[in-house]
């Protein structure tokens, strides 16, 4: 059975987001919560990359032996990839801040249980 790559990627992105939201909302371990949040970000990034996917497409780099019309027909859409690069950097920064906070809170409370540290 041939699976459409773009469709499969969209489903994977959706699954990552749903799993991430579940982990962030319902798991008590703060590290697992953060992993869930990373899943959400990764799912959205995968979704954006998938938008730019073109079956059989080439990387958006114009080489000397290409013609403009051939390049326009075969190159994949580059904007989503450029956006995702920024999004990954933002995700890494927020992840670092959260993990830093968890380290401080672990030292203070001696646990990484969300219910004990954050209350409800």
């Amino acid at each position: 059975m041939v699976v459409d790559t773009q469709l499969a990627s969209f489903f994977t992105a959706g699954a990552l987001i749903v799993i991430g939201i579940f982990a962030a909302l319902f798991l008590d371990n703060l590290i697992k919560k953060v992993i869930g949040l990373a899943f959400i970000g990764d799912g959205v990034n995968l979704f954006i990359i998938t938008i730019g996917y073109k079956p059989g497409g080439i990387v958006y780099i114009f080489l000397p032996d290409m013609t403009v019309s051939w390049f326009a027909q075969n190159a994949s859409y580059p904007l989503p990839f450029a956006l995702v690069l920024t999004s990954i950097v933002i995700g890494a920064s927020t992840l670092a801040v959260m993990l830093g906070l968890i380290i401080i809170l672990h030292k203070k409370h001696g646990t990484i249980s969300a219910s004990k540290i954050l209350g409800e």
């Binding site: 703060l30 919560k33 949040l37 959400i40 970000g41 959260m98 906070l101």
Partner: peptide, 12 residues
Amino acid sequence: LKYMILGNIAAP
């Protein structure tokens, strides 16, 4: 941390 957790759901 609470604000960041909620933010990391809302911002994506």
